[in-house]
C-alpha cells in the first residue's frame, strides 16, 4: 500500500463537514478512482492526500511515512489545468523542474521528451490560449510526469474536455501510466470513466463524505479499448456502481 488514509476528517471554516472518518488504502502501481456525486468531498480528499489543504483529524501515510504537505513523490493534475497563461507549453511542462532549480537546458530536454509522450510534439512554443481543452490537460499531465513522482493525483482531469477527445485521452492515459508504472488516484463523477480506467473504485457518499463501498472491477486490461467497453465485467461494474450511487441522487 503506497498511500494510506487513516480516520481523516475535514470540516471547512464555514461549518460544512466535507469528510468524516475516511479510511482507505491505495495499492502501488494501480489506478484508483474516487467516485461520487458532487459535494461528496472527493476533491477535498484528493487535495488532503496531496497536502494542499489541511485536514482536521486523522493522518495520511505515503510509503509508510506520515505527510503534512506536498512532497516530491506526489504530483497533481488540476481540473482547470493550472497552466501559466504567459508561458509556452515548453516552460509550463518544465515548470515543476524549474521550481526545483534544475538548470534550463536539462529541464527543457526532459520536458520535450514528455511533450512528445503526451502527443504534443510540435506545440512546444505555443501558449495555453492557443490550445484546446484536451491539449491543455495533456500539458498538465506532462508537467506532472516530468517531476518523476511515483504517485499522480488527478482531479477530474477530463471534465472540461469534450467527449471525443476524452475517450482518446483516456486510452492514452492508461497506456502512459502503465508504461511508467505510476500509482494513480483519480477523481471523477463519471461512472463509465471510473469503470473503464480503474483497478479500484472508491465510492463516496455525500455530506459528509464517507467511504460507501470499494469496488474492484475485474476488467481484463489486455483487451483493446473497444473490447473493454463491451466486456461483461465492465458493464457489470457500471451497473453495480449505478445501483449504489442512485440512492444519493
Amino acid at each position: 500500500m503506497i498511500v494510506e488514509v487513516k480516520n481523516v476528517a475535514k470540516t471547512y471554516e464555514n461549518g460544512v463537514e466535507a469528510l468524516r472518518d475516511v479510511n482507505l488504502a491505495f495499492p502501488q502501481g494501480q489506478l484508483s478512482t474516487l467516485l461520487g456525486p458532487s459535494g461528496c468531498g472527493k476533491t477535498t480528499l484528493l487535495k488532503i492526500i496531496a497536502g494542499l489543504i489541511p485536514r482536521n483529524a486523522g493522518e495520511v501515510l505515503v510509503k509508510g511515512k506520515p505527510v503534512d504537505g506536498p512532497g516530491p513523490e506526489r504530483a497533481f493534475v488540476f481540473q482547470d489545468f493550472a497552466l501559466l497563461p504567459w508561458a509556452s507549453v515548453l516552460r509550463n511542462v518544465a515548470f515543476g523542474l524549474e521550481l526545483r532549480g534544475m538548470e534550463r537546458e536539462k529541464r527543457e530536454e526532459v520536458a520535450r521528451r514528455y511533450i512528445a509522450e503526451v502527443g504534443l510534439k510540435g506545440f512546444e512554443h505555443r501558449h495555453p490560449s492557443q490550445l484546446s481543452g484536451g491539449m491543455r490537460q495533456r500539458v498538465g499531465l506532462a508537467r506532472a510526469l516530468t517531476v518523476d513522482a511515483d504517485i499522480i493525483l488527478m482531479d477530474e482531469p477530463f471534465s472540461s474536455v469534450d467527449e471525443q477527445t476524452r475517450r482518446k485521452f483516456q486510452e492514452d492515459l492508461l497506456d502512459l501510466l502503465r508504461h511508467h508504472r505510476k500509482t494513480v488516484i483519480f477523481v471523477t463523477h463519471s461512472i463509465e470513466e471510473a469503470a473503464y480506467l480503474s483497478d479500484q473504485i472508491v465510492l463516496l457518499s455525500p455530506r459528509p463524505g464517507t467511504v460507501s463501498r470499494v469496488v474492484n472491477p475485474n476488467v481484463d486490461r489486455n483487451k483493446t479499448p473497444d473490447e473493454i467497453r463491451r466486456d461483461r465485467a465492465y458493464l457489470d461494474t457500471v451497473d453495480e456502481i449505478w445501483g449504489i450511487l442512485r440512492q444519493y441522487v
Binding site: 487535495k47 496531496a50 497536502g51 494542499l52 504537505g69 506536498p70 512532497g71 516530491p72 506526489r74 504530483a75 497533481f76 488540476f78 481540473q79 482547470d80 493550472a82 501559466l84 515548470f95 515543476g96 521550481l99 526545483r100 517531476v147
Partner: peptide, 15 residues
C-alpha cells in the same frame, strides 16, 4: 492571482 496556480506552485514544492 488564480488560486489553482498557487496550489500548483505548492504542489511542486515551490517556495
Amino acid at each position: 492571482t488564480h488560486p489553482s496556480l498557487l496550489q500548483m506552485c505548492r504542489s511542486f514544492q515551490g517556495t
